[in-house]
């Protein structure tokens, strides 16, 4: 029964909510109590915009339990526009299009399912950014 575990992190999984250090303005995801830059222990919530680019990537052919139904799937370290790296799956992307430097944007998708009758875990994934429409 993972409901409390899943529920507790909704702000992170739905909204990419991390923290910003009140002393040095450094932004971090996920949230932590002590700043990785200056060591101060005073944070305020910060929502990341969700844009970024692929910093490194791989493809998972042998998934861990809970992710079998999605395999094979691409995973990546995404460099968010505000600085931090995030580890996440990529989605809606052809294998050949995955590359370091690919522009991506955060979307909310099903991330895992512990059982057919359990809670569905929704969270962030990244997909190639859909460019703004032109008139």
């Amino acid at each position: 029964m993972n409901a409390p575990h899943t529920w507790r992190q909704q702000a992170q999984r739905y909204l990419l909510e991390g923290v910003q250090c009140t002393a040095c303005d450094h932004r971090m995801f996920p949230p932590r109590a002590v700043c990785t830059e200056c060591g101060a222990a005073s944070m305020r919530p910060h929502r990341f915009c969700g844009g970024g680019e692929v910093y490194s990537y791989s493809f998972v052919y042998h998934p861990p339990a809970g992710h079998e139904e999605f395999a094979p799937y691409p995973v990546a370290l995404v460099r968010l526009d505000e600085g931090p790296l995030v580890a996440a799956q990529l989605t809606d992307v052809a294998t050949d299009d995955v590359a370091i430097g690919l522009r991506v944007e955060m979307v909310t998708r099903r991330v895992r399912e512990d059982s057919a009758d359990g809670v569905i875990v929704y969270g962030y994934k990244f997909r190639p950014a859909i460019p703004p429409a032109r008139r």
């Binding site: 992170q12 996920p30 998972v60 042998h62 998934p63 861990p64 809970g66 992710h67 999605f70 799937y73 995973v75 995030v86 580890a87 996440a88 799956q89 991330v111 895992r112 875990v121 969270g123």
Partner: peptide, 8 residues
């Protein structure tokens, strides 16, 4: 933030 995201 790694394992539960599906990263083996």
């Amino acid at each position: 933030y790694e394992a539960r995201q599906g990263l083996s």
